[in-house]
Amino acid sequence: MKRSNAPIFWTLFGAGGMLSALIGPMLVLITGIAVPLGFLLPADLMSYPHMLKFAQHWAGKAFTFAVVSLFLWHGVHRIFHSLHDLGLKTATGAKLTCYGVALLGTALAAYSLLVIGF
């Protein structure tokens, strides 16, 4: 019997769901509201030199890669299954599109972080 690939996608969905549930709201608050407004946190926290240093560090790289890729795998898995809930009958195209988006995003994140260097 052919082994199902579902556990892989489900694990990525679960890991991304857990990570985004734990830090998602705070991350949005930090990167999208507090830092751009200079409210609570200094506006230069995400300046080019600071973020370059952050992304060049192995821990910063790992964090950025984990957040971007796992959030994507979580989201697309859920969207794919919701499309079925909304009555989409043929699923192959939707599956390829959804997981393809996550795969592309993961590859772009890895490539960018490598280009940024160490």
């Binding site: 991304g16 989201g75 697309v76 960018s112």
Partner: peptide
Amino acid sequence: LVVAYAAVLL
């Protein structure tokens, strides 16, 4: 929204 935020960060 989770995907949208990941896209912003990416």
